[in-house]
Design a protein around this nucleic acid. Structure first.
Length: 493
RNA sequence: GGCGACGUGGCCAAGUGGUAAGGCAGAGGCCUGCAAAGCCUUCAUCCCCAGUUCGAAUCUGGGCGUCGCCUCCA
């Protein structure tokens, strides 16, 4: 049984879906007024892993993530840059999708854009007005917070305390128009030049919160199983979504509210004023997505995560511990010989089974990736010990292959593709250059050239001509072809 | 001020009341011409105090500290 922490109840509870074997999941997407930052990425990667895990566990997951492409911030940005809001939104929507794919985040099943779902939003607003939960004031429509008895239940807030505590901070100038200072806009009258749509209340645009309520309802219905987002969305965004959706449908909006913890940089909150604002695309210029994921996997998704260059390089080393083992296994497999087995196959098969169980045990407990990773590392260690200094027998191959595939499978659940990882690592552009150079130099094809150099070095080593041997190794290393000597001979890592 | 989360070895980080996973770094050793990778050994009693319990990192209360949200925010 999978257990998840539900923000609504502030406790870990059994995960039971509305429909057996199926999960409906909605995660709030970004407002596209800039490239997404590393904090956004943390949230989206967290939910990508949750989604992949649920799928791996056999659920049919329907995953919806919106793009908020009409909003104050977009309009502001457009004004600053002297172009239309639609242009700004289009540019960053495209960039968002590209960045997500670069981070190996799976595309959602449906990615609705707010601007393409306006009729549904208007309908929802009308429904709220009819039900006495919203009211119009000169083209604006506000949600009447006090009409929803459960307001505050998600974030654990008390309406009266909220009001008295911060009235003095509210200075939007619109306060007079609202019946209650807590009320929030579900529809905003358009100012000149702003993007707008025709509505029963005149030209206008939807409020932020109503967008998610409408899109979630349209594509997943009500209620849904999981609604997720960053922890900073709990209030007011998700609280307001609940108020709107539940007022309209009279039923529960979402059964499980899952929130990912905030990302900090060098122990400080990420913000433009502190100058530590990192864009995902900039991080990915120098960091492979697998390494970024590795870093994130090591911290539980609900805990604050501290991002730093040190942790990034530690994660790279940690990841290589796994990739090295896979490479070692592949190499051993291809060099297996027709000899009696020296492995304890039964113990290995047991280990594989236990590792899988430990992984599931950890991940079933509120997606404990650090625990799951621990199981994987422990497996890698045990496996390395079992195969250390051994030549494989042909009869070992099925079990060894199973072990290697387990590693790939579990890493795949984390969104880390070991095969892609190795291909990317093995053939950077420089190597292609070397290949051509080597091929030209040796007057034959590249593989021939490399083999010739290896043979040359092997001979030098057998003659104890270390200087020549090292010269060849250094020469190839300059082109990212790293030679490692093993008891069975040289290999290229 | 209100609400909430968290404090585990040098760093990061799991942890289901029964006596502390894992990664990184460090130390020693094995293997090796050297290197790389790998293996072996070694490295904490869990912020403080008090309670509950046969037994607590895990439960309760109180301190101290850090962080987040309360305003747009993933």
């Amino acid at each position: 049984m999978i257990r998840v922490y539900n923000t609504k109840t502030r406790s870990k509870v059994d995960f039971e879906t509305l429909e057996l074997g199926c999960v409906t999941m909605y995660v709030c997407g970004p407002t596209v007024y800039n490239y997404i930052h590393i904090g956004n990425a943390r949230t989206f990667i967290s939910f990508d892993i949750i989604r992949r895990y649920l799928t791996w566990r056999g659920f049919k997951v329907t995953f919806v993530q919106n793009v908020t492409d009409v909003d104050d911030k977009i309009i502001k940005k457009a004004g600053e840059e002297g172009r239309s809001a639609a242009e700004v939104a289009a540019e960053y929507t495209e960039a968002f999708i590209a960045d997500m794919r670069a981070a190996n985040v799976l595309d959602p099943d449906i990615r609705p854009k707010a601007t393409e779902e306006i009729p549904e939003m208007i309908e929802l607003v009308e429904q709220l007005i009819r039900g006495g939960h919203a009211y119009e004031v000169e083209g604006d429509v506000y949600f009447a917070v006090r009409s929803f008895a459960d307001y505050g239940k998600l974030s654990g807030r008390n309406i009266d305390e909220m009001e008295t505590g911060h009235r003095d901070l509210r200075s939007s100038g619109l306060e007079d128009r609202k019946r209650d200072s807590l009320d929030f806009a579900v529809w905003k009258a358009a100012k000149p030049g702003e993007p707008s749509w025709k509505s029963p209340w005149g030209q206008g645009r939807p409020g932020w919160h109503i967008e998610c309520s409408a899109m979630s309802k349209k594509y997943l219905g009500t209620p849904i199983d999981i609604h997720g987002g960053g922890a900073d969305l709990v209030f007011p965004h998700h609280e307001n979504e609940i108020a709107q959706s539940e007022s309209a449908c009279g039923c529960t909006f979402a059964n499980y509210w899952i929130h990912s913890g905030m990302l900090q940089i060098n122990s400080e909150k990420m913000s433009k004023s502190l100058g530590n604002f990192l864009l995902l695309r900039d991080v990915l210029k120098t960091t492979r997505p697998e390494v970024l994921r590795m870093l994130m996997l090591q911290t539980h998704y609900r805990s604050p995560l501290d991002f730093s260059d040190e942790r990034l390089s530690e994660s790279e080393v940690a990841l290589s511990r796994i990739t090295n083992t896979v490479k070692n296994l592949e190499w051993l497999e291809s060099n297996a010989q027709d000899i009696p087995s020296r492995l304890d196959i039964r113990a290995l098969l047991t280990l594989i089974r236990e590792t899988r169980n430990e992984f599931i045990f950890a991940m079933d407990d509120d997606f404990n990736t650090a625990g799951g990773l621990g199981a994987l590392f422990a497996f890698v260690g045990d496996l390395n010990a079992a195969i250390a200094d051994k030549t494989l027998s042909l009869s070992d191959l099925p079990a060894i292959r199973q072990a290697r595939e387990l590693i790939a499978e579990l890493m795949g659940v984390f969104g880390i593709d070991l095969e892609g990882e190795q291909k990317a690592a093995s053939y950077p552009p420089e190597v292609v250059g070397l290949a051509q150079k080597l091929a030209g130099y040796a007057g034959s094809d590249t593989a021939q050239a490399v083999l010739a150099l290896l043979a040359c070095r092997t001979e030098a080593r057998s003659n104890k001509d270390w200087a020549l041997a090292d010269k060849v190794r250094d020469g190839l290393a300059a082109f990212d072809l790293v030679i490692e000597d093993t008891p069975q001979g040289p290999r290229i890592a």
